[in-house]
Amino acid sequence: MATLLGTYTPKLDEKGRLILPAKFAEDFEHGIVLTRGQDRCLYVYSAAEFDAVHQRMRASATGNNKQTRDFMRLLLSAAHAETPDRQRRVTVPAALRGYAGLERELVVIGAGNHAEIWDAEAWNDYVSSTEDDFATAAGEVIPDLF
């Protein structure tokens, strides 16, 4: 799987579908998993990557840790498998659209091993609220990055 990069601005149609970016087509052609993401966005994994993420969660899960159980429950209970059609369209289930507050205008970003779907206004607010921290935090967040 290639590293997913970039920012795209598809629209949600009246049937709750969006067209995934062409740059992601090869990674997502064998199926995707849409699920609840952090910060009120949706995560989009290739089916293979979602399986790998699930296996890492299971391997690291400490059976009686409430935080681990809560995280896994929320991520997995919202998961929805889908195969993009020939036009790269996928349907976003109503529950996930509601969770992320998705309206017609969307932003899809590449986030490394997955993509994220944001309501355009929510994405712009997020970027505005985190830009100053981004400008100063690289060394603290990821040591020796630059």
Rank of each mutant, 00 (worst) to 15 (best):
L102F: 03
R104P: 12
L106G: 02
T9I: 04
R17P: 04
A78R: 08
T91F: 11
E131H: 12
G31L: 04
E26Q: 12
V44Y: 02
E116M: 06
L76K: 07
N65G: 15
V127L: 15
G98F: 03
D51C: 05
L76P: 07
N65C: 15
D70R: 10
D144A: 01
L145D: 00
R97T: 14
S129W: 11
T83P: 03
A135N: 14
G139K: 00
I117Q: 08
T62N: 15
V53Y: 07
L34I: 01
A79L: 02
F50R: 14
F146T: 00
G139A: 03
N113G: 14
E140P: 00
W123V: 13
G139V: 02
D85L: 12
A120I: 09
P84T: 07
A25L: 06
Q55F: 10
P10D: 14
G6R: 11
A47C: 04
I109W: 03
E29W: 01
A52T: 11
W118K: 10
G110V: 06
E140C: 00
F71T: 05
W123A: 08
V92Q: 12
L102A: 06
A100V: 09
L20S: 13
T83M: 06
V108S: 03
T91N: 15
F24L: 11
F146Y: 01
E26I: 02
R56F: 01
R104E: 07
E105L: 04
E82M: 11
G37V: 09
V108A: 05
G112S: 03
F71G: 06
A120R: 14
A137V: 04
Y126M: 02
R17A: 09
R17F: 05
G6Y: 06
V90P: 06
